[in-house]
Design a binder for these strands. Structure first.
Lengths: 113, 113
DNA sequence: GCCATGCGCAACCTCCTGGTTGCGTCTGTG
DNA sequence: CACAGACGCAACCAGGAGGTTGCGCATGGC
C-alpha cells in the first residue's frame, strides 16, 4: 500500500501534460464551446473566437495530444469531440493529491499525540 | 439553471491559471514531496530536487498565486502546505465540463429521435 | 468542370516561462 | 557579537508556447 502510494507519487509528474493542456484560456474556451455546442468542426469552433482558425487548430492538436479531445474526418470537415474519460483521470490525480496530503497530516497528528 | 450553466461555461476560462499551475512537472514533484512529507520548508523541499532552491521558490510562489499552496513564517523558515480546497475547485471544473458535454450529447440524441 | 469551402503545412515572430547565479537580509545560536 | 543557516530580490539567459500569415490540397455542390 505504501509502495503503491510512493510509486503513484512519482508517477504524478506524468500528469503534467494533462493539466498543462487545460491551463490555457483559449483552450478552455474551445472546450466550453464544444460542451455547449456538441461535436463540431474547426471553422464552427473558430467563428466568434478571438483567435485565428490556425490558432484553434493548434489548440485542438494540443488537447488531442493530451488525450482530452478526439477528432474524426467527416467529408471535408473534421469533427472534434471531448473525451470525458481523460478528464476523469485528471480528477483521479487531484483526488490522490488531496488524500495523500490528508494522510500526511494524520501521520503528523499521530506523532504529536 | 441553464442561465447558471451558460455563465459557468464563460467563467470556465478563469480556471486556466489553476490548471496551468498544475501543468508543470517540477511543480507536481514539489506537490508530491509535500504530500509525502507533510508541511515543510523550502530547503527541505529542495533537497533531492533536480533544480535549485530559487527554482523551487519560484514554483512555490506560482502555486501560491494559484491558491494551491499556502505558507507561513516559522522562525527563519517558511513552512509550505497544500490547500486541498483549491484542488476541490479544480475537480469541480472538471465535473462541470464532463456533465455539460454529456448533456450536449443528450440534446443531440434527442434531436435525432 | 469549376469554384467555394474546410483543412493542413510551414515559416516566422514575440513574449512568457523555467532556470541559474550572485548578493543582500533576517534570524537563531554558541 | 559573530557566524551560519534559511530565505528574498534582481538580473540574466535559453527555449518553447501562442499567434499570425501565406500557400497548397482535397472535397462537395452547382
Amino acid at each position: 500500500m505504501s509502495r503503491r502510494r510512493t510509486g503513484a507519487a512519482e508517477k504524478l509528474v506524468g500528469a503534467a501534460p494533462l493539466f498543462a493542456a487545460l491551463g490555457d484560456e483559449t483552450r478552455l474556451s474551445v472546450i466550453a464551446r464544444l460542451c455547449t455546442g456538441g461535436p463540431q468542426s474547426i471553422v464552427r469552433l473558430t467563428s466568434g473566437a478571438k483567435v485565428s482558425r490556425q490558432a484553434v487548430t493548434k489548440h485542438l492538436q494540443a488537447l488531442a495530444d493530451a488525450g482530452i479531445v478526439r477528432s474524426r474526418r467527416e467529408g471535408r470537415e473534421r469533427i472534434w469531440e471531448v473525451r470525458t474519460s481523460r478528464l476523469a483521470e485528471a480528477r483521479g490525480w487531484l483526488d490522490q493529491i488531496s488524500s495523500q496530503w490528508d494522510e500526511a497530516l494524520d501521520r503528523l497528528r499521530a506523532l504529536v499525540e
